[in-house]
Computed example of a mutant assay.
Amino acid sequence: MKDKEIINDSFALGGFTSGKNGIWTRNEPFDPPADDYAALSSKLGIPLSRFIRPYQASGDKVEIVTAEHGGSGVIKDNELKRTDGLVTAEKGVALSVIAADCVPVYLIARSAGVIGLLHCGWRSAAGGLLHNGIAAMKELGASPAEIQFIIGPHICADCYEVGEEVRTEYAKAFSEKELEAIFKVRDKRLYLSLSKALQLKAEAEGILQEKISAVNECTCHDKSYYSYRRGDRGRQDLAYLVLK
């Protein structure tokens, strides 16, 4: 079990955790909350009725959420289906996404009082998820230039071997020079840096380079986390972010 504090100041609290069992989902809409969610709720002092978890699909959909969505995906079913990004301007609402190698991206706009949390797999990192997340934050009054962009723990470029079809897909979204920075070849094998891809995407959206940072922890290397590539099935880590 491992808990990583990503941010904790007067504005926001965010973290990344494996939990004890790595089970954050329920089998049926009316099942009780997962034990790991209950434990996290107790630890943070945030009621389960204030947590929100979307039903993710490794896509581009982002939803603006409020307290009305509280408990969704945690203690009740919800309409946040095929959704990989959450944005809110409401205090005390805990955004959360599950990940087991994919990238959690924490978005913080202090002046506007807006936060966002994204779940970026390789498709989302090349697609429109980040653009849509920034657009949702702009809708709530945030400016890209003020957004703090934090890349959470995820599978690193040394571990993430991919096929040539992934590079072909990325070629639709990045220049040849950018592709050279995103992909590396070792022993005739292709490796992808999700972190680099997301940094380039963020800069293209108007986020300032000095506001972009990354947590240097790999979910595949670090056995305290759950990792799909390492063989964990049915168990994930959880990213969360709440506006204080």
Rank of each mutant, 00 (worst) to 15 (best):
D36V: 12
A173T: 12
G163A: 13
L241H: 08
I7M: 08
G128P: 01
A214K: 14
E161G: 03
A109F: 06
H221L: 13
P104Q: 09
G85Y: 01
V215N: 10
Y55P: 01
Q209I: 08
P153K: 03
K177N: 12
C220S: 09
E68P: 00
G73M: 05
K76I: 02
L241K: 01
S58V: 05
K138N: 02
Y226N: 03
G15E: 10
N216I: 11
Q209R: 12
L241R: 03
L238N: 05
G19M: 08
L179M: 11
E165C: 08
L40S: 04
K4S: 05
L190R: 08
S72Y: 06
A109I: 11
D84H: 06
G206E: 15
L48P: 00
L129F: 00
N27E: 12
I23H: 00
A112I: 10
G116C: 13
A67V: 11
E79S: 15
A142F: 07
L190V: 11
F11M: 08
D232S: 12
T25Y: 14
I182Y: 01
W24G: 09
E203H: 04
D31S: 13
A94C: 15
Y55S: 11
D187N: 14
V62M: 05
T17W: 08
H221N: 09
S58W: 00
S42F: 07
L95Q: 00
R233L: 10
S124G: 13
M1R: 02
S213R: 10
S18H: 01
A67S: 14
D3P: 02
T17H: 09
